[in-house]
């Protein structure tokens, strides 16, 4: 690739997507995507953490010795997550109440440690931060798509409570897709998360096969599923 930033973008958004290709961070992915809004909130919080940890760890990479790098990374991540949690609590308190439990758990989100270990600790600050941004946006998109499918099938709405997250101006985002819908409870419950995730991953593979570049994906980074 001529332009490293184009490559980073492509990796983060599609070919090495945290959820659909790396299959990391399954716990938050499945836990909060009952609605698209929750997915968006979780995705944005994680993106903020990814960008800041990417930058910080890249800047500290010559100071941190390899022997203690894992605890050092975790301390940096924990610090950033604490900042994000406080910010959410202060400015989007309603969403914080919904996502509350999962925000501190971003520390244990293995995708963040994964990016620190695999990318930020080896590259310069700009690239590491950009990688964090793209990985985060890819993660956010995955969560929003997953949440949207589950929300439409499960309760017939889309972006319910979006105004809590984005402010009253975004009230028009809150759609009722299927009026008088009885609700397909299974989709909101955890099994629905697994089912929709599986179908979306299959869809991604089909798209890649159509494009005839599935071979390149196989060679890419795809650690086994050990989502925290």
């Amino acid at each position: 690739m001529s332009n490293p930033y184009a490559q980073i973008s492509r990796d983060g958004l599609w070919s090495n997507n945290i959820v659909f290709a790396q299959v990391l961070a399954l716990c938050p992915t499945l836990a909060v995507t009952g609605t698209a809004t929750n997915g968006l909130g979780m995705g944005l919080a994680t993106t903020a953490v990814l960008v800041m940890t990417g930058l910080l760890i890249s800047l500290l990479r010559n100071v941190i010795t390899p022997q203690v790098r894992i605890p050092a990374f975790i301390i940096v991540i924990a610090m950033v997550v604490t900042l994000v949690e406080m910010a959410l609590n202060a400015w989007v308190h309603e969403l914080y109440k919904v996502l509350g439990l999962f925000i501190p758990l971003i520390v244990t989100n293995c995708a963040i440690l994964g990016r620190a270990e695999a990318y930020a600790s080896k590259e310069n600050g700009a690239r590491a931060a950009f990688d964090g941004l793209m990985m985060g946006i890819g993660f956010t998109l995955a969560l929003v798509v997953l949440g949207a499918v589950r929300e439409i099938l499960g309760s017939g709405t889309l972006f319910a409570n979006a105004s809590l997250l984005l402010g009253p101006a975004f009230k028009h985002l809150e759609l009722v897709i299927i009026p008088d819908y009885r609700g397909f409870l299974l989709m909101i419950l955890p099994p629905g998360g697994f089912l929709v995730l599986g179908f979306l991953m299959a869809a991604k593979r089909i798209i890649e096969r159509r494009r005839g570049r599935s071979g390149a994906i196989e060679a890419g980074c795809s650690p086994a599923a050990h989502g925290a």
């Binding site: 609700g183 397909f184 409870l185």
Partner: peptide
């Protein structure tokens, strides 16, 4: 089971 849980 899926139906029973979804549409009690």
């Amino acid at each position: 089971v899926a139906l029973l849980i979804s549409f009690p």
